[in-house]
């Protein structure tokens, strides 16, 4: 019991950050699963984070209403971004979203009344671990339902071949717009969760570092199933801590090597439903050659 408590003291915050990062990775996955690479999760997180922090401080609302408000704020931001950006081609889209991340930071810096400006903002509320677990479980449940619904099927079709999907009556832009609204809501909630975990937010909180973490988590975990980003965020968050305790001398190198090994040998990420089907097909071929058809 003693050791368990020690472990908790040492790694409790890592687990909390892993869950917050999972929310950001899921927000990125929401648009990536319809074939759009976008860094705007950072923007949605900033909207949700400052909205939640200010409303808790000045309106005196509770934790869960703050999450709801952050989600709505993010969803509104998501629909605005989608309306403006969806006509862009893929690489221009990624570039424009990155530009928006830079613009967001400048805006946050220059609106001190709303964001605390360069001094940042102290957040007078924290999120208990249990609530964070429930929050992530709820968001994951939404993605589970999306995956198993007509939306999920249409999203996969649009991602794999938008032109073919459109000749089957699926509106690619409509599906991608919905994806941005979902990404906005989840990103906003993630931003609020980060604010309540750090209890202090500044322009640097919602910047390039977060963009890197969420893209790396999604690619690492796999962007072909909603469980991938959650696994990816856990691995990506835990890796530095683990390497620090195992190989303190070459921590950074070891972290880089592990990431490279995963990306080279599992280019579609740790969670890949297609690989399961391919393995099954390979097994079937082998048994067919041996004359025992399955």
């Amino acid at each position: 019991m003693e050791t368990l408590l020690d472990l908790w003291a040492a790694y409790g915050s890592t687990i909390a950050f892993a869950m917050v990062n999972a929310l950001f990775a899921l927000s990125t996955y929401a648009v990536l699963s319809t074939g759009v690479l976008s860094f705007t999760t950072v923007v949605f997180a900033a909207v949700g984070g400052f909205l939640a922090a200010q409303s808790v401080a000045h309106l005196g609302i509770g934790l869960w209403p703050a999450f709801a408000l952050a989600g709505i704020g993010g969803a509104v931001a998501g629909s605005v971004v989608a309306a403006a950006f969806l006509k862009l081609d893929s690489h221009w889209m990624a570039l424009a979203s990155l530009a928006l991340v830079l613009i967001t930071r400048v805006t946050v810096l220059n609106t001190p009344l709303l964001t605390g400006g360069v001094n940042g903002l102290v957040v007078p509320m924290s999120v208990p671990m249990g609530d964070l677990v429930i929050l992530l479980a709820l968001v994951a449940a939404v993605f589970w339902r999306l995956h198993r619904s007509w939306y999920g099927l249409a999203a996969r079709a649009v991602r794999e071949d938008a032109a073919v999907a459109s000749t089957m009556g699926i509106p690619p832009r409509g599906i991608q717009f919905t994806a941005f609204v979902i990404s906005g809501a989840v990103g906003g909630i993630g931003g609020a969760a980060l604010a309540f975990t750090l209890q202090f937010i500044s322009p640097e909180t919602y910047f390039i570092g977060m963009a890197f973490t969420m893209i790396a988590s999604t690619v690492l975990g796999g962007s072909f199933h909603w469980f991938g980003p959650i696994v990816g965020a856990a691995v990506f968050t835990a890796l530095p801590v683990t390497m620090q305790s195992v190989l303190p001398a070459i921590e950074d190198v070891a972290k880089g090597v592990v990431l490279l090994v995963i990306m080279i040998f599992l280019p579609r990420g740790l969670v890949d439903p297609r690989a399961v089907g391919l393995r099954r097909a390979a097994r079937r071929r082998v048994s067919a050659e041996e004359g025992t058809d399955v």
């Binding site: 007509w150 249409a154 996969r156 079709a157 073919v164 089957m168 009556g169 699926i170 297609r274």
Partner: peptide, 25 residues
Amino acid sequence: FSGMTVLEQVMTGCWLTREVGVFAS
């Protein structure tokens, strides 16, 4: 579509005749 089973491919082709809203689904 890469990554889809045979049935999923054809289900996707049934998008227009699915008889149910995306939100209800």
